[in-house]
């Protein structure tokens, strides 16, 4: 539906719904923190951003041009390769997967003994992998400054045309 629809507003709303659904799915997968974030940031913030952008650019998509089969083929190949990759993964939910046997148990015991807060995700996020979080802040900062830098031209348009700064 997202592919077919030409009204971008609906597309954006649908993608918001999709985000929300995925948040729900995260809950069933025990990832409550992620679900919160996805609901707030993915479904909420992103949709607002999209709406803002739509308000500035208009919301109708032109009719799609001549279809070429290439994207479909690429998509199929991608999916096939990924599924081939997935075959080798430990079965879904298996407790013996290497990912659950190594490193992860230390986090759980470590959170109890070293950090002392109940939420393991927060513990890992803030301490063991705190540096990632710092980097994440960096990313937000970059995006913020980037958006300001890109859009301030628009808020205060310059008079001179872009071409004549030669010399």
């Amino acid at each position: 539906m997202i592919i077919r629809l030409q009204n971008l507003l609906s597309v954006v709303m649908l993608s918001g719904v999709f985000s929300l659904l995925s948040a729900g799915m995260f809950v069933t997968l025990d990832a409550v923190d992620v679900a919160f974030t996805e609901a707030a940031v993915g479904a909420g913030l992103t949709t607002i951003l999209f709406l803002g952008a739509l308000a500035l650019t208009g919301s109708a998509e032109k009719a799609p041009r001549q279809r070429s089969p290439l994207p479909l083929i690429v998509m199929a190949v991608l999916a096939a390769i990924l599924i081939y990759g997935v075959i080798g993964l430990p079965p879904f939910g298996s407790a013996d997967a290497p990912a659950h046997r190594y490193v992860m148990p230390e986090y759980i015991s470590g959170t109890q003994t070293q950090i002392g807060i109940p939420n393991i995700v927060s513990a890992v996020l803030a301490s063991y992998r705190g540096f990632d979080t710092l980097g994440e802040t960096g990313v937000i900062f970059t995006a913020g400054i980037g958006v300001i830098l890109l859009l301030r031209r628009r808020l205060a348009p310059r008079v001179s045309p872009p071409e004549d700064d030669a010399g």
Binding site: A31, D33, V34, T37, E38, V41, G42, A99, V103, M104, Y107, I108, I120, V121, V124, L125, R129, D132, T133, G135, E136, V139, I140
Partner: peptide, 12 residues
């Protein structure tokens, strides 16, 4: 919990 941590970062 580790994938959760990673994805929190990735969402942002």
């Amino acid at each position: 919990p580790l994938p959760h941590v990673l994805i929190l970062t990735a969402i942002v």
